[in-house]
């Protein structure tokens, strides 16, 4: 939709937009009723507020046709329901951005629109950052997290031998490892797969899958059944190895799995024996 059209819509709904952004109490009522219809006592209890501020806001919500009352319980109207879902997604997006350095000055072009819209799935995440006394912290933390998982899926446009080591160790422990690499990383992999012990590990393993992706990726991420971990490039084009976003939340893991599938669609499977014979 073009800017002019959006601004026209904005002018039409400006007061509605204000209405749903301006009052914390009102929004809490909307979010709370989205869970299930409630009476005044339940709302008081949940929002930890007295009757009067709640009733005042409910009156306004009723006037806007977002809430209706039946058998002493308050329900969201269809409009209220839609707004509540949107509001939740918007709040989660704000929370995802809040206090997280990774979004500033980093290249986010490799996160496709669908995933941007659902960025709120990463709400419950934390940053693992290099410190002066531990500059490799994101790397070591990542490897430590990998030690207890049973399935690894990773997409990477960067190469570091320490990662290869972890993946090989995982394969030896019968852990499934699916990897999507960019062309330059694939070349590196081809080089090291000449080493005898590596050839042995990978050719004995039925758990390894490698895919090659043509696109130039600006994101490195890993998703397992336990966590999602992501690193981005700085705007100047270098990978920021000092910062990782990590989440153990189910929503973030689902988001990561979907992103993996998204990239898998554009990737070609690489025959393992082809690599090792190289």
């Amino acid at each position: 939709m073009d800017t002019e059209k959006i601004i026209k819509i904005y002018d039409e709904v400006k007061s509605d937009f204000k209405f749903i952004t301006n009052s914390t109490v009102r929004n809490k009522i909307i979010l709370s009723l989205n869970q299930f219809p409630q009476d005044l006592y339940e709302l008081k209890d949940k929002l930890n507020l007295k009757s009067s501020p709640i009733l005042r806001e409910i009156k306004l919500l009723q006037k806007q046709n977002l809430v209706y009352k039946e058998n002493n319980h308050y329900f969201l109207s269809p409009q209220g329901k839609i707004i509540s879902l949107k509001l939740e997604s918007l709040i989660n997006a704000f929370l995802t951005m809040k206090n997280k350095k990774i979004w500033l000055n980093h290249d986010i072009s490799s996160i496709p629109p669908y995933f941007m819209r659902n960025i709120g799935c990463l709400r419950d995440s934390f940053m693992i950052e290099s410190t002066l006394s531990d500059i490799r912290k994101p790397n070591t933390h990542y490897k430590k997290m990998l030690s207890s998982v049973s399935k690894i899926k990773a997409v990477s446009p960067i190469y570091d031998y320490s990662y290869v080591e972890v993946y090989l160790n995982s394969l030896q422990k019968d852990i499934e490892v699916d990897l999507i690499f960019t062309e330059p990383v694939m070349q590196k992999i081809n080089e090291i797969f000449n080493q005898k012990e590596i050839i042995e590990t990978i050719s004995n393993s039925k758990n390894l899958g490698i895919w090659k992706i043509e696109a130039e990726l600006k994101i490195a991420f890993t998703v397992t059944e336990e966590f999602f971990s992501m690193g981005l490039f700085l705007e100047n084009g270098t990978y920021d190895s000092t910062l990782n976003l990590v989440s153990k939340d189910e929503k973030a893991i689902t988001w990561g799995n979907r992103l993996f599938e998204y990239y898998l669609k554009d990737a070609q499977k690489v025959a393992i024996n082809f690599i090792s014979k190289n």
Binding site: I9, F17, Q79, I83, K86, I108, M116
Partner: peptide, 23 residues
């Protein structure tokens, strides 16, 4: 900014949704 690029579409989406609800 990157934050702006993430937040702006979310806000626009809220606005168009309100438009659809109202219209």
């Amino acid at each position: 900014s990157q934050t702006g690029q993430i937040i702006a579409p979310k806000l626009i989406d809220m606005i168009t949704t309100l438009g659809v609800i109202k219209k």
